[in-house]
């Protein structure tokens, strides 16, 4: 088992690491560890890469792991975290008059917050949050019933990266 005590960087934020990953991603020198969002929060974790390399993560502090974090980077081997996609509801608020827009946003935020979900807001203002099962889609549609005509709702299976300050516990 190889012990990892800190991450080296992130392929999406470090040009050099990103370039190396692009170059090696289809070669045996590049290995991927698939980790769920909840596991990314851990500081002690034993995982195997897609090529079977056994890694023991013992992070000294608690910086959350992220999709694209590099765990090992040597001439022989690069190991990168790949976050496992999950079910997500994405919502776009339709164009409305300013007053209605504000009210809809507050009601939407209140409902999602009441369910203790972390949220992600992309650069186009699309709000998304994770769900455990398809059955929750109907639940949320019912909860949104008063504003549902003002919303475009999509269900996707993708990597969910919570907005930092909005990453609450879930249950």
């Amino acid at each position: 088992m190889l012990t990892v005590t800190e991450t080296i960087g992130n392929i999406f934020h470090d040009k050099e690491l990103g370039g190396k990953f692009e170059q090696l991603r289809h070669s045996p020198k590049c290995e991927v560890v698939k980790i769920s969002r909840s596991e990314l929060e851990k500081t002690r974790l034993r995982v195997k890469t897609n090529q079977g390399t056994d890694l023991g993560l013992i992070l000294n502090s608690a910086p959350k792991l992220h999709n694209g974090d590099v765990l090992l980077n040597s001439p022989e081997k690069m190991v990168v975290i790949e976050q496992i996609p999950e079910k997500v509801i994405s919502i776009k608020i339709k164009k409305l008059a300013e007053d209605s827009q504000n009210e809809t946003s507050v009601i939407l935020g209140h409902i999602i917050g009441n369910r203790h979900r972390p949220i992600q807001i992309d650069k186009n203002g699309i709000i998304s949050f994770p769900i455990l099962a398809d059955s929750e889609v109907e639940v949320f549609k019912k909860l949104f019933s008063k504003i549902i005509n003002q919303l475009e709702i999509k269900v996707e299976n993708r990597i969910f990266e919570p907005k930092k300050e909005m990453d609450v516990h879930e249950h």
Binding site: S38, A62, H171
Partner: peptide, 12 residues
């Protein structure tokens, strides 16, 4: 059945 532990508290 929705019990979980904070990752700040339990590693496993």
């Amino acid at each position: 059945v929705m019990t979980t532990f904070s990752p700040a508290l339990a590693d496993y």
